[in-house]
Structure formats: C-alpha cells, structure tokens
Computed example of a mutant assay.
Amino acid sequence: MQLLLRNTLHGLFCASAVLCAVDARAQADMQTSSQRWLEAAVVQAPPVQGQGLRMEVSVGALDPRLQLAPCSKVEPYMPTGTRLWGKSRLGLRCLAGATRWNVFMPVTVKAMGRAWVAKTNVMAGTVLTANDAMEAEVDWAEDASPVVANAEQWIGQVAARSWVAGQTVRQAMVKPAQVFQAGTQIRVLAQGVGFQVLSDGQAITSGVVGQPAKVRLDSGRVMSGVVQDARTIVVEM
C-alpha cells in the first residue's frame, strides 16, 4: 500500500519536471498533494479499541524561508518514530534533482469518535459514578493518553487527578479504587491444580482489585496474592 501511495504522490508532485523554490504556488501544490496522500493513508488505519473513527486531516505550511532546488521526483514518507495521529509531520525528500533535499511538513490528524467527557469538575480521589461523565464525540488523537471508551472502564474507579467539565476521559485520569486498608481482616484463597484452601489473615498492604497485595496468615506466614474483591486475596500455589 505504501508503495502505491508513494507512486501516486510522485505523480501528483512531479507532473512537471521542475519543482521550484517554496513560492506560493509550490507551497499550495505541496499542501494539496500531501493532503491527498494523508487522506489515502488514514483510510487504511485499523479500528481503535474496536471502533471505526472518522479521520480528519489538515496540512500545515513549510517554512517560507526554505529555498528548494528543482526536483523531478519527490518522495513522501513518515519519519521514524512518528505516526498519523494528532500533531505529526510528513517528510518530503528529493530523489532526483541537482541538489537533494529533505523537508518536513506539519500535519494534524484528528480521530473523531464517541467517548466519555466530564459533566462537571471532579476532584482528584473522587469515586466515580455514572453521573460524572456523558457520551459525546471527541478527538481521540488530541492527547497521548488513550481514550476511555467504555463506561465499565471508569465507573466505580477513582479520579487519578482533577477533572474539568467537558474534558475527555482518558486512561491517565482514572485508577482502580482501594477496597481495603493495611490491617484489615481478609480471606485468603490459596488455590492450585485440583485444590482450594480458604483461610483468614490480616492485610499487610492496602488492596486494589486486580493488583497484588500482601497478607499475614494467622500462623504468621506472609503471602502475596491478587486482590479479588473487598474481602478476598487469591494466592496461586
């Protein structure tokens, strides 16, 4: 696909054998061609979290101070370590000219889709309820932290930092809720192939569902396991 897009862009850029300095006309031609290349590329993007997003591409301008030598073959490429998501850049390099050059054009790729946004301001540490956010169309690519797309990913969780009304709910904004503190009496379910043993103990560390915690059994033995719920740690033997 990349080769096909590249050849298409070559044709768009190189209908003339001469590509001059970055004057207004050359700038407009390069922006138009880059826009088409990017639009073709993002159409091929796979679904994100199982959702097909509506991609919107906008192309910036090259530095007007650049003076580019004539080139009959310009190749577009994505620089190493970049992706077509949010604010990015598209590389353009001359492959057939008296002077080889390589420049970067700023681009922005929005990924529009349904997600959750804060209804009101929420303080850090708040246990979140269904009233704290509502569904809306947002730009998934606006921030590096992934969007929280499903309600079960945030309802019952804790706000990891303060929220502002209208802010898109992202994974960095929530964390699992603590279900017990150190010193709490809990159950320890020790299990292995073909057996389960249930005993009592005292939590040495606080407990967060799905996270590791330590417990001291009545015998004095210390064990590590995974918090199952507000009363139980599971220890795999």
Score class of each variant (00 low, 15 high):
V164Y: 01
V164K: 01
V164E: 01
A165V: 02
A165C: 03
A165H: 03
V169L: 12
V169H: 02
R170I: 10
R170C: 12
A172P: 14
A172T: 15
M173K: 03
M173Y: 11
V174F: 10
V174K: 05
P176L: 08
P176K: 15
P176W: 04
A177K: 01
A177L: 00
Q178E: 07
V179I: 08
V179A: 04
V179K: 05
F180K: 07
F180H: 11
Q181D: 09
Q181M: 06
A182G: 13
A182M: 14
G183D: 12
G183Y: 11
T184E: 09
Q185S: 14
Q185D: 10
I186H: 09
R187C: 03
V188R: 00
V188N: 02
V188W: 00
V188D: 02
L189V: 11
A190Q: 10
Q191V: 07
Q191L: 11
G192H: 15
G192T: 12
V193S: 05
V193D: 06
F195N: 14
S199H: 08
S199R: 10
D200Q: 11
G201T: 14
Q202N: 15
Q202M: 10
A203M: 06
I204M: 10
T205A: 14
T205P: 04
T205N: 13
S206P: 05
S206T: 09
V208L: 12
V208Q: 11
V208F: 09
V209W: 03
G210M: 03
G210L: 01
Q211F: 01
Q211G: 00
P212W: 01
K214W: 00
K214G: 00
